[in-house]
Nucleic acid binder design. Sequence first.
DNA 1: CCAATATACATGCAATTGCATTTACATTGG
DNA 2: CCAATGTAAATGCAATTGCATGTATATTGG
Lengths: 145, 145
Amino acid sequence: MPNQHTIAAWTALVTANRRVLETIERALKTAGLPQLSWYDALLELEKAGPSGIRPFALKERLLLPQYSLSRLLDRLEAAQLIDRHEAADDGRGQIVHLTELGLRTRQKMWPVYAETLLHCVEDRLSPNEAAELARLLAKLADAPS
Amino acid sequence: MPNQHTIAAWTALVTANRRVLETIERALKTAGLPQLSWYDALLELEKAGPSGIRPFALKERLLLPQYSLSRLLDRLEAAQLIDRHEAADDGRGQIVHLTELGLRTRQKMWPVYAETLLHCVEDRLSPNEAAELARLLAKLADAPS
DNA sequence: CCAATATACATGCAATTGCATTTACATTGG
DNA sequence: CCAATGTAAATGCAATTGCATGTATATTGG
């Protein structure tokens, strides 16, 4: 049976996550921008640089189920934010690249996202508290053993 | 622009939340039990006691959108875990009660849920760390201003 | 070489979610 | 009293998610 602190921590984790996420999604929608999941994908694509990235690798970075990424890429491609080509060295796979429009879209999303983080996180925690929070949460984020 | 600690905290929050949630949902599904959202609702219904609770109040406790709760209650009712009656004093509303089966279902879910929390949270944090985590997260959980 | 197995990705279908709107009753100000 | 407004809850419809499975290529053990 978990002790009371464990339960309090987990409850607070769920609540905080919902509250912040909700606020971010609402801000993005209000600004006429895509969902946060698009941002995450676009950012990873940008980090991957001009060589692009394979979906199976992207899936690891984004912690998404395979089918979920497959469909996210469908939507990003339909919106012309990414390109998909066959992988030269693996007939099963493909390589995904960010388009110019994809880059610009992420850049337009960032100020809205950032503003919400300031409001919902930075204004509420000192730098030390934020660092401590990150440290504690990292302990929970490792792959389940 | 958020500082690096803010970003680290937010990223870790999202990741930790996903990892733990995923583990809980998988454990429940493997045990042939309903989703975590059902647990939360059943628990609140249990807390409400024999007088039951109005959906609009339940929605505040569960932090769910109105339509989302309405449909969750549809499913719980179809599974005979709750009863819904018209509210005696408000013709627009209803009162929701837990059934015997609803109570037993929550009781069957708890060991599975608890075991996952032990594994994913309690084993990874000292009691002091858990308490500190809860304290920090609570600062993020207040209604957005 | 090749059968067995593993990996990469897609997809049909059912369940769930989100959004906007609707229905019904309640409350309030004139 | 009653029109206007507010609140409780449901619902049509489109989008998203989850699950199971399918298709295609790659790898590996004998």
